[in-house]
Computed example of a mutant assay.
Amino acid sequence: MESVKKVKETLAVDLGALLDAGDGAMVTVVAGETRLAAHRAVLVARSPVFQAMFHHDTLEASSGQVAVTDVEGPVMRQLLAYMYTLQAPQLSGMAPQLLAAADKYGLSDLKDVCEQQMAEQLDVENAATAAVLALRHSCPTLRQVAVAFIKAHKYQVVMTQDWADATVSHPLSVVELTRLIVEPPAETRASATTESRLIPDTQLYGDDDWPDPAAVPTASRRFPPLFDIAVLYYRSLPGLQRDRNLIQAGEEGAVEKLEALLAAGADVSAGDEQRLTALHCAAREGHVRAVNCLLEHGAEVDARSNLENTPLHLAAWKGHAAVVRLLLASSADPNATNRFGKTPLHRAALDGHAGAAAVLLESGANRRAIDNTGDTPLDLARQNYQLELIDMLT
């Protein structure tokens, strides 16, 4: 048995070298700008699709050229390499595309490997892609793992760009995925139906289940399909937890999550232990869209932290000129002082953010303002050798 295994391994290596050499190639595979020389016998032996293609009177069979329009060149290169060597590439970033290509050409072993790789690397950002791919290419293991993962991280996944992209590119698959997410397990469905006459509807769903989406009102079309379900989820949380999530969403710049939390009744003026609001956090991190969202929902533009910093102080401190401009356009006070008597211009000058300082000066910030230690913004710029700011403030 060991000798047979060695022979197979040697054959695979030899075939791999043959692919690179291109000697005696009878077929040219064209994928985009990539042209690959391959041997007809290898393609026919490995893939039932190629076998059918070359055993019938087709254009490919007569011309010796196969045009591939739906597989990118690098992916096709890896697919052919597998067909020659039977060794799956360990390229996790290519696994989704390679899985689809393997399914197309009937390479079930390669498809299984890609499915396993994707299942092992599931996270919030790629779960929607993995689940949709599993549905479209009949991958039961990946589907089971991905659906379970999404059920456990429902609102995080729904608020990702990955989910939004999936709703646009594969809407029917997302509809099916939504059904799998909200549907109770098969073994409990019958008992739930029997008990439904005795138990209120709100008690039929556990923490890992969602209400029936058909019973949920339709949200604005700019949101993903599960926006309303996310709103219901947030409404089920205690008020303080909703508010904490809102502050975290502001820090992350997660606009869709902010929208859902605010629709669920989160307090836009709520602060953390330092009295930092979601607007403070979004401004500090430079999230322009999140800042705009919060302002549109009534966030106080000059809200004060426990150190009397406004969101404008924090945006200037971090040098986020675009956020500074947005806050000023929303009537933020350019000369507000914190507990130390520092204005936003002091903070920009102290940390050398000339862009933010320029926007503040354009909006009437007082360059001669004095803090509690008697320093002006120019004094702070000089102390820290901020030459550009020294010229600007002189």
Rank of each mutant, 00 (worst) to 15 (best):
E2C: 04
D14P: 00
A21S: 12
G24E: 13
R35F: 12
A41S: 12
S47T: 11
G64P: 01
Q65A: 02
V66W: 11
M83K: 08
T85V: 14
A88Y: 09
P89I: 09
S92F: 15
G93K: 13
A102P: 05
S108P: 05
E120Q: 15
Q121H: 14
A130D: 06
A134R: 04
T141L: 14
T141A: 08
Y155E: 12
Y155S: 04
A164G: 01
V168S: 10
H170Y: 13
L177I: 03
I181C: 10
V182K: 07
A186N: 03
A186V: 13
E187C: 10
E187A: 05
P200I: 13
Q203P: 05
R222H: 15
V231S: 02
L237Q: 03
L240W: 11
D243S: 06
D243M: 09
I247T: 07
A254H: 02
E256H: 07
R275D: 12
A278K: 00
C281V: 02
V291P: 06
C293K: 11
R304D: 02
S305A: 10
L307G: 08
E308C: 02
A316K: 10
H320F: 01
D333H: 08
R339M: 05
G341Q: 04
A348F: 08
H353Q: 14
A358W: 02
L360I: 00
N372Q: 09
D379M: 11
E388R: 12
D391S: 05
